[in-house]
Write a protein that binds this DNA or RNA. Structure first.
Length: 879
RNA sequence: GGGAGUAUAGCUCAGCUGGUUCAGAGCAUCUGCCUUACAAGCAGAGGGUCCGCGGUUCGAACCCGUGUACUCCCACCA
C-alpha cells in the first residue's frame, strides 16, 4: 500500500486535525474533580498581527498546556486580546485621516463608534492566526480587556483603590507624548542615547553694560519659558551674581539668579537655565525657589502663546529658529556636540515632553509589599531566576503609576467633578447616578442636577486592565466556582521586557484583591532577534511573515525551529534555517512511518533474537528520554527537551532501531517486531505531541485504525517513566561503536555500503564480548552489513572501544599505511597510559578523590594497556 | 551613577554537582555516496589558547580574585 508521499506535506493535515480537535472539544475546559492546569495568554493587541515573538511565546504555552492535558490535568488556556488604547487609537485616527476625517471633528461617541467598527472588523485576526500555529486555547473563553466582564472589573477596582486611599489625583511632572497627545507612565518611556547640540547662550546681567552669564542648553526653544538662572552655591565664578537678575534674551524677561546645589559645576558652563514647566529637575528647583512656571508648549508640541515668539511652530522647528534668532543678536557663545539620553514614547516613538499636569496616580508603595515578598521568598518562581534581582530593584524603588490617558479608546475614568467655591470636588462612582447621589450628600444640595457634574474625559492606561487579567478572565469577582478552580494559574509565559509593565503589576493585583499570587511560575522568554542581533521590528523589515513561514515549513516545523533555540530568558536569534530543521525532522518522522507501513506481516515467522534485543534496547532508551524529559519540563528547559527528543527519534529510533528490526528486503516482518515498532512509535508521538502536535496526531492515526476519541492529543502519558536496562544499553553502545568502526573502514578503503564485509572471529574469544552473545552479534552484523567468519585473526585490524576486530577485505591492503596508522595509535595509547599512571601514582589523588573516580582511572589504565597489547600483536602479524 | 548577564569550533549555542558524557551539538565548509523509508537523505573529514592573568584543589571550561570586551536593565546632567 504505497500511497504515502515521499515528502511530508503539512498544509491539509494541519487544518484537518485542528478542526478535528475543535470538534472533539478538547480545548474546552470546565471545572471538575481533576487537578487544574491553567494558563492565561499574554493578550496581544487586538489590532496586532502574528509576529515571531508571538510564535515563540505561544508555542511555549501550547507545549505546556498540551503536556498537562496528556498528564491528565484539566488544562485550560484562556485566550484573548488587549484593547491597547494608544496603539489602537492611533491606528483608528490614521485610518480616519485617510478617509479625510479628523478626530477633532468627531464627538467621543462618534469616534468610539468608528473604533468599535474597526475592532469588530480587524480585531482578533491574530487569534485566528494563532490557530494556524496549533494553539489549543479554550476559544469559548476568549476575553477582551474592554468587554463587559473585564470592563466592570476595571471600574470596580478603580473605585476600590480610591476608597482605600491608594489612588489619588495630583498635579505632577509627567511624560507627555505630543503625538498621541496623552500622558504616559514611566514604563512607557524608552530612553536611548542620541546625538544633540549643546548651545551656549549668554544672558545679560541686569543693570550692567556688558556683563553676561552663559548657560548651556540642548533646548534653546525653552529659553522662552525660563524663569531663573541657577548656579552652584559654592561656585566661585558666580558668587558675585547671587541675588542679581539676568535678562532672558530676545524676550527680555528679568529672572533671578539663584544658587542651588543641584547644579553641576563641571557641566557646560556651570550655569543652568531654569524652565520649571519643561524639565523635571527644573520643576523641583522651581518649587524650592518659588519660581514662576511658564509653559511655552501646546499639547501637540508646538509653541504656545506664552512663548511669545514662534507661536504655533513645532518644537523642533522652533529650536532652529530660536538658534538663528539668538545668533543674529550675538547671544550664541558656542556650540558643542553632546550625546545624551532622550526619552521616546514606546508607541509613537516621538520625543517625550516633561509636562506638568493633573493626572490620576496609583500609590504603589501601598500595594507593592506582598508582591515583592512573594517573589523573593519563592512563593512565585521566576525562570530564569536572575530576573528576581531586576524585579526586586524595581519594586523597592517603585514610583507612583500614572494611569490616566488623554484618549477615548479605553475605560473611561469613573470620576465626576463638581466646581464649588473655586474648589473642584471629586466623586468616584460606578455610575453617574451614584456620583450625583454622593455629590448631593456631600454638598447638602439635594437639588443638584447631573448636568452640574462633569465626567472625567480621560481613559485608563491599558495596563490598568491587563494587570487584572488572571483574575478577570475567570470573572474573579462574580464567579467563585470558576475562580477558585483555576486561580492561581499555573504558569505565565511572557517576555522579560514587560516584567514591570505587566508581570509585577499582576502580582500586585493578585495580592491586593485576592490575597493570592496570580501564577505559580513565570517563564520569561527572550527577545526574538534577527541574525544580526537586532530586535525584530516593522521598521527594519527584518521580521519574517509568520504565516508565510508556517506556509513554507509547516506549523510543526516552525514550532520546532523556534523551540529548539529558545532557552528561557535567552534571546533567540531567529533564522529560517531553524524552521528548515524542523521541517526536515517532520520529513524524517514521516518516512519512518512510510517504512513501517511498507512492511508485510507474517505471523508465522519466528522473531529473531537480534530483534528481541533491539526492542528491549529501544524501550530502555525511550524510558531514559522519558525521564529526562520530565526533568526538563519541571525546569522549563524546553529547548533541551525537544532537542533530546529529536536526537532520540533520529538516531536511536530511525538510524538504529528501525534498521535492526527492518525485515530483509523482500521478506515479511514477524508480528512481534512489527507490533513493537508501532508501540514505540506511539510513545514517540505522545512525547513529541506537545512540541509538534499536527504530525504526531497524523502519525497516531496512520499507525492504527482508531475509534472515536482515541486521539494523540489526549493520549495519557504514564505516571512514571518505565524501567531501564543498563546492560542492554551498554551492549548496544558497544555494537554501535564497532559498527562505526566498520563504516570508517569502508570509507577508508572506499568500499560501497552494499558490499558485505567479513568480520573475523579472533583467537582470544574472551575479549570479544559480542561474539558470544548471538543476539548482539546478529545486530552487529546486520548494522554493519557484515558476515562472520570463524577463521584466524587476519586481514585488517581495527579497534572498537577496547576490543580489536579483524575484517577480511577482498582487496589488497596497503601494509605500509596500516603499519603507520597502528604505530601512531600505539604512540597515542602509550602516552595515554603514562598520563593515567601518573595520576594513579599520585598519593594525594588516591587519598582524596572519591573511590569511584579512582576506580575509573584504574579502568582507563587497564583498557589502555589492553589496547597497547593488541596493537603490538597486530603490528607483529603484519610484519 | 546603580545593577544584572555574557565570553567555548567560521556561526548559534549545550556543557546541570569540579573528575569518562570533558572539550560537545546543530548549522556552515570540504570529501564520498541517487545504498530498496527519507538527497528535506546517508557515511565521513577538517576546524578549539574553553577571553587574558593570578589563585584554590590531587584535579578547573566549571569555584575564587582580577583585567579586558560586549549585551541588557534601572536612574538620569542641562
Amino acid at each position: 500500500m504505497e500511497e504515502l508521499s515521499k515528502r511530508y506535506s503539512p498544509g491539509d493535515i494541519e487544518d484537518k486535525w485542528y478542526a478535528h480537535w475543535m470538534l472533539g472539544g478538547y480545548f474546552h475546559s470546565e471545572p471538575d474533580e481533576r487537578e487544574a492546569y491553567s494558563v492565561v495568554i499574554p493578550p496581544p493587541n487586538v489590532t496586532g498581527q502574528l509576529h515571531m515573538g508571538h510564535i515563540l511565546n505561544n508555542t511555549i504555552q501550547d507545549t505546556l498546556i498540551r503536556r498537562a492535558r496528556q498528564e491528565g490535568k484539566n488544562a485550560c488556556w484562556v485566550p484573548g486580546t488587549d484593547h491597547a488604547s494608544i496603539a489602537t487609537e492611533a491606528k483608528v485616527v490614521n485610518l480616519l485621516r485617510e478617509k479625510g476625517i479628523r478626530k477633532s471633528d468627531l464627538t467621543r461617541e462618534e469616534f468610539l463608534k468608528y473604533a468599535w467598527e474597526w475592532k469588530e472588523k480587524y480585531g482578533g485576526i491574530i487569534l485566528h492566526q494563532l490557530k494556524k500555529l496549533g494553539a489549543s486555547c479554550d476559544w469559548e473563553r476568549t476575553a477582551f480587556t474592554m468587554d463587559e466582564v473585564r470592563s466592570e472589573a476595571v471600574i470596580d477596582v478603580f473605585i476600590d483603590l480610591f476608597n482605600k486611599g491608594k489612588l489619588y489625583r495630583g498635579k505632577r511632572m509627567v511624560n507627555w507624548d505630543p503625538s498621541a497627545q496623552t500622558v504616559l507612565s514611566n514604563e512607557e518611556v524608552l530612553y536611548e542615547q542620541e546625538k544633540a547640540t549643546l548651545y551656549k547662550v549668554r544672558y545679560q546681567i541686569e543693570g550692567t553694560e556688558d556683563e553676561w552669564i552663559t548657560v548651556a542648553t540642548t533646548r534653546p526653544e525653552t529659553i522662552l519659558g525660563d524663569t531663573a538662572v541657577a548656579v552652584h552655591p559654592d561656585d566661585g565664578r558666580y558668587k558675585h551674581l547671587h541675588g542679581k537678575r539676568a535678562i532672558v534674551p530676545l524676550i527680555n524677561r528679568k529672572v533671578p539668579i539663584i544658587a542651588d546645589a543641584y547644579v553641576d559645576r563641571e557641566f557646560g558652563t556651570g550655569a543652568l537655565k531654569v524652565t520649571p514647566a519643561h524639565d523635571v529637575n527644573d520643576y523641583e528647583i522651581g518649587l524650592r525657589h518659588n519660581l514662576d512656571v511658564v509653559d511655552v508648549l501646546n499639547p501637540d508640541g508646538s509653541m504656545s502663546a506664552a512663548a511669545i515668539m514662534f507661536v504655533g511652530l513645532d518644537r523642533d522647528k522652533a529650536r532652529l529658529e530660536m538658534y538663528k534668532a539668538l545668533s543674529v543678536e550675538g547671544h550664541i557663545v558656542g556650540t558643542e556636540d553632546l550625546i545624551h539620553n532622550v526619552g521616546r514614547s514606546e508607541r509613537t516613538r516621538v520625543v517625550v515632553e516633561p509636562r506638568l499636569s493633573l493626572q490620576w496616580f496609583v500609590d504603589m508603595k501601598q500595594i507593592a509589599g506582598p508582591a515583592l515578598d512573594a517573589v523573593m521568598n519563592g512563593e512565585i518562581d521566576f525562570y530564569p531566576e536572575n530576573l528576581k534581582n531586576t524585579y526586586r530593584h524595581w519594586m523597592e524603588n517603585i514610583r507612583d503609576w500614572c494611569i490616566s490617558r488623554q484618549l477615548w479608546w479605553g475605560h473611561q475614568i469613573p470620576a465626576w467633578y463638581l466646581m464649588q467655591d473655586d474648589e473642584e470636588l471629586v466623586f468616584v462612582a460606578k455610575t453617574e447616578e451614584e456620583a450625583l447621589e454622593s455629590a448631593r450628600q456631600q454638598t447638602g444640595r439635594s437639588d443638584l442636577q447631573a448636568s452640574a457634574l462633569r465626567r472625567d474625559e480621560d481613559v485608563l492606561d491599558t495596563w490598568f486592565s491587563s494587570w487584572l487579567w488572571p483574575i478577570s478572565v475567570f470573572d474573579g469577582w462574580k464567579n467563585e466556582k470558576e475562580f477558585n478552580y483555576y486561580y492561581p494559574t499555573s504558569v505565565l509565559v511572557t517576555g522579560w521586557d514587560i516584567i514591570f509593565l505587566w508581570v509585577a503589576r499582576m502580582i500586585m493585583a493578585g495580592y491586593e484583591w485576592k490575597e493570592q499570587k496570580p501564577f505559580q511560575d513565570v517563564y520569561f522568554t527572550g527577545m526574538v532577534r534577527d541574525k544580526l542581533r537586532r530586535k525584530m521590528s516593522k521598521q527594519l523589515g527584518n521580521s519574517p511573515d509568520a504565516l508565510e513561514l508556517i506556509e513554507q515549513f509547516g506549523a510543526d516545523g516552525v514550532r520546532y525551529g523556534v523551540m529548539a533555540s529558545a532557552p528561557a530568558g535567552g534571546d533567540i536569534l531567529f533564522d529560517d534555517k531553524l524552521c528548515e530543521l524542523g521541517r526536515n525532522f517532520c520529513n524524517k518522522i514521516w518516512n519512518a512511518l512510510r517504512l513501517i507501513k511498507s512492511w508485510n506481516v507474517d505471523p508465522s515467522i519466528e522473531q529473531e533474537e537480534g530483534r528481541k534485543l533491539g526492542i528491549r534496547w529501544i524501550r530502555s532508551r525511550m524510558n531514559v528520554i522519558d525521564a529526562e524529559l520530565r526533568q526538563q519540563y519541571a525546569q522549563f528547559r524546553l529547548s533541551e527537551g525537544v532537542t533530546a527528543l529529536y536526537s532520540f527519534v533520529w538516531d536511536d529510533f530511525c538510524s538504529t532501531f528501525l534498521e535492526i528490526i527492518k525485515p530483509t528486503y523482500g521478506e515479511a516482518s514477524d508480528a512481534e517486531s512489527y507490533e513493537a515498532a508501532l508501540q514505540v512509535f506511539e510513545e514517540i508521538c505522545k512525547l513529541l505531541h506537545p512540541f509538534m502536535p499536527f504530525i504526531t496526531e497524523e502519525i497516531w492515526h496512520q499507525l492504527r485504525a482508531r475509534i472515536g476519541g482515541d486521539d494523540c492529543i489526549v493520549a495519557r502519558i504514564a505516571e512514571k517513566p518505565g524501567e531501564v536496562d543498563e546492560d542492554v544499553i551498554k551492549t548496544l553502545e558497544h555494537i554501535l561503536t564497532v559498527k562505526s568502526a566498520v563504516l570508517e573502514l569502508r570509507n577508508q578503503y572506499q568500499l560501497s555500503p552494499k558490499e558485505t564485509i567479513v568480520l573475523i572471529h579472533p583467537s582470544e574469544e574472551e575479549l570479544i564480548s559480542l561474539w558470544n552473545k548471538p543476539a548482539a552479534k546478529s545486530i552487529l552484523l546486520k548494522l554493519s552489513n557484515a558476515t562472520a567468519d570463524e577463521g584466524e585473526s587476519s586481514g585488517v585490524s581495527f579497534l572498537a572501544g577496547k576490543y580489536q576486530y579483524y575484517a577480511a577485505l577482498h582487496i589488497e591492503i596497503d601494509r605500509e599505511a596500516e603499519l603507520k596508522r597502528m604505530n601512531e595509535e600505539l604512540v597515542y595509547y602509550e602516552g595515554f597510559v603514562i598520563s593515567v599512571d601518573k595520576k594513579l601514582s599520585n598519593e594525594k589523588f588516591v587519598a582524596n578523590a572519591s573511590p569511584e573516580v579512582v576506580e575509573k582511572e584504574r579502568q582507563k589504565k587497564a583498557d589502555g594497556e589492553s589496547k597497547i597489547e593488541q596493537l603490538k600483536r597486530s603490528i607483529e602479524q603484519l610484519n
